[in-house]
Each structure stands twice: as C-alpha cells, then as structure tokens.
C-alpha cells in the first residue's frame, strides 16, 4: 500500500489525540527545527522506510506529562525521551501495518534534529500539527527499491 498524507495524519491523530488526548491541528510544515529533537524508527523487510517524529523539547515534556500523568518537574530526562520514543514506536508500528508487507520494526532512537528536516529528500511524506502550542512533524522516508541501499538513520 502506498501511504498518503491523510493516512499518516490519521495514524498520528489516533496515537496522539484519540489515545492520549493531545489536541492536534494540522499546520504548514515550514518549521524551524532549531532545538528540536527527532525520534526515529526504521522498517526493514518487504518495504524499507523510516518514520521520524520531530518535536521541540517543550512539546516532548508536555507529551511525557500526559503519558505519565505527572508534572514536568517530577519527570527525568530519560522519562521524557522514553515517552517521545514511544510516540515514534506507535506511529511507526501502524505505518508498518499499513504497508501490509512482512517487515521488522526497530526500537526507537532519539537524536538532535538540527537542520535534518531541511536535508530530507523531496519525495518523503511529511505532515505537521500544532500540539500544545508547538509543532509536531511526522516524516515518512521510504527507500527507493531501484536505488542503491541508503542509510536511513543518517538524518538523525
């Protein structure tokens, strides 16, 4: 199955809004990634792709507050990263399911976003929401089957 932006948006809404109660509003994806972090999972097998979730550290903390039902002051940096990684894991798992081909899902990794959104290939799928007053960007990068193998995690 070829994934389109509405499907990626729906998966994100199901994870963040329906399950966690975080309100999402679609916005322009022209986002400054300074001080943002990215949580990534890779899908390898019948289809090879990566799902990246970009968020500012304030949004990561807000997500963690919701997931842990706790004030930010009581959460450790590790707990905030854990919650953010789980968002990428859930979105990535559902993207893998939507592909409908046998493949493996990696554990999430988290790194600095820097200017990685600007360096993404044009053909990747991206969608951005406003969440808790901050942008939340989801990117699906799929490897071209005809092209030589690429290191999907190189963007992080």
């Amino acid at each position: 199955m070829q994934l389109d932006e509405p499907t990626l948006q729906q998966i994100t809404v199901d994870v963040c809004q329906s399950m966690l109660g975080l309100a999402l509003t679609p916005i322009s994806s022209d986002i400054d990634t300074a001080k943002q972090l990215v949580a990534s999972v890779e899908i390898r097998g019948g289809r090879t792709a990566a799902v990246d979730v970009f968020a500012h550290e304030h949004l990561m903390a807000a997500i963690a507050e919701t997931m842990f039902c706790a004030e930010r002051s009581s959460l450790s940096a590790e707990e905030i990263r854990d919650a953010f990684g789980e968002i990428a894991n859930m979105i990535g798992g559902n993207v893998k399911g939507a592909f409908g081909e046998e493949s493996d899902l990696s554990l999430p990794t988290i790194g600095e976003a820097n200017d990685s959104l600007d360096r993404l290939p044009h053909e990747c799928l991206r969608t951005t929401f406003e969440c808790c007053g901050h942008p939340l960007t989801i990117v699906l990068r799929e490897a071209d089957k005809k092209a030589p193998p690429v290191e999907l995690s190189a963007v992080v």
Partner: peptide
Amino acid sequence: ITSESSPE
C-alpha cells in the same frame, strides 16, 4: 499489547 499491527 503492541504497535505491530500487521496480520503476520
């Protein structure tokens, strides 16, 4: 309880 939603 998993995000792995594929039939296999």
